[in-house]
């Protein structure tokens, strides 16, 4: 025989799955929501997405090549996912230079400063988003009008910011509600907001695809949504004049986006199903606390980042059930 035999430890077969495939499945799952955002916000949305994606890919390549001096891994798809998620989290009229700064924060600080894919503690896209939100609060919270909502205005506020402002002015919910879109509108995506957060239906569609492809499990999204729903429900039942009904909390403010696409980020979420449920409940509790009692109308980004920090601790203490007990 001319060729040498290969010797390697078992197993000798592989499932043919790869990290790239997982990343591209995530991208595919985001396509419906992405298409809807372009439909609603027009070419501006496309501009934001393109800038964010290209900036993320470029920063990943440049930093890996010239600062870290390792082989760039831009094609693994993770920077692409970060770019799209970052775009999903900003209004479509955001100036290009803010998006680029956000991308740098996401890739540079959020991901590569920890060592790259797999080593980051926080979800990179959220690091970028929060960085932009704190640095450029005005630009980040003035959304263009949703062409599908039929509200006549140049800029529109998100339902949550309308509520927050109303309550701080002492207006009862029953009055505020008149200015709010209906639950159905929110579900299908007829509201103002960031690119990716407006249509709950399309986000759920993407989530179902990822569930089907086993990219994510149900534990994190369901535990977040259930916690938010239950907590908001309790407050609503205590005083419906100050607290809005839980449907609004679930369908607005990027909760679906966060629960389905951001919190489920593999790298920064816990490993065991039990840990994932603890993590989801934590995100739900913090989200509602920020929304109801904090300064910001929305809280899911901060909630996810805070729980990201607890992930190593959860992994340390929450172990899978071992075979053979003890």
């Amino acid at each position: 025989m001319s060729k040498l035999l290969t010797v390697s430890p078992s197993p000798h077969v592989h499932s043919d799955d790869s990290t790239q495939k997982i990343m591209y499945r995530v991208v595919l799952a985001m396509v419906p929501a992405l298409a809807w955002s372009v439909f609603v916000f027009g070419i501006d949305a496309l501009r934001v997405i393109l800038i964010a994606v290209l900036a993320c890919l470029a920063f990943e390549y440049l930093i890996q090549k010239y600062l870290m001096k390792i082989k760039p891994s831009v094609m693994d798809g993770s920077a692409l996912v970060t770019g799209i998620l970052l775009a999903f989290n900003v209004p479509s009229n955001l100036p290009w230079w803010i998006i680029i700064i956000g991308s740098l924060a996401a890739i540079g600080i959020g991901k590569l400063s920890f060592g790259g894919l797999g080593h980051n503690i926080f979800n990179p896209a959220l690091v970028g988003r929060v960085f932009m939100l704190i640095s450029f609060p005005v630009q980040m919270t003035s959304w263009p009008v949703n062409t599908q909502s039929g509200i006549d205005a140049v800029t529109s506020a998100t339902p949550l910011s309308i509520i927050k402002e109303g309550i701080s002015n002492g207006t009862p919910i029953s009055e505020i509600s008149k200015n709010l879109p209906s639950a159905l509108e929110m579900f299908w995506g007829g509201i103002g907001g960031s690119l990716g957060e407006i249509s709950a239906a399309l986000l759920i569609l993407g989530g179902l695809y990822m569930l089907y492809k086993k990219v994510i499990t149900w534990h994190i999204p369901v535990s977040i949504i259930a916690t938010v729903g239950i907590m908001a429900g309790i407050f609503w039942m205590v005083n419906p004049e100050i607290y809005i009904n839980p449907v609004y909390h679930i369908l607005t403010g990027g909760l679906m986006l966060g629960a389905i696409f951001m919190a489920t980020d593999m790298v920064s979420s816990p490993m065991t199903p039990k840990g994932q449920i603890i993590y989801g409940i934590g995100i739900g509790v913090i989200t509602i606390s920020i929304r109801l009692f904090g300064a910001y109308p929305e809280g899911i980004s901060f909630a996810i980042l805070i729980m990201n920090a607890f992930t190593p601790l959860i992994n340390y203490y929450v172990k899978p059930k071992r075979f053979g007990g003890k």
């Binding site: 990290t19 891994s73 894919l117 797999g118 920064s268 979420s269 490993m271 065991t272 899978p320």
Partner: peptide, 19 residues
């Protein structure tokens, strides 16, 4: 091989409940 992305599939397929 690439870096671990903590997808936790190894944990879910381990028949002995290990990590």
């Amino acid at each position: 091989y690439m870096a671990c992305i903590r997808c936790s599939r190894c944990v879910s397929v381990c028949p002995m409940g290990l990590e």
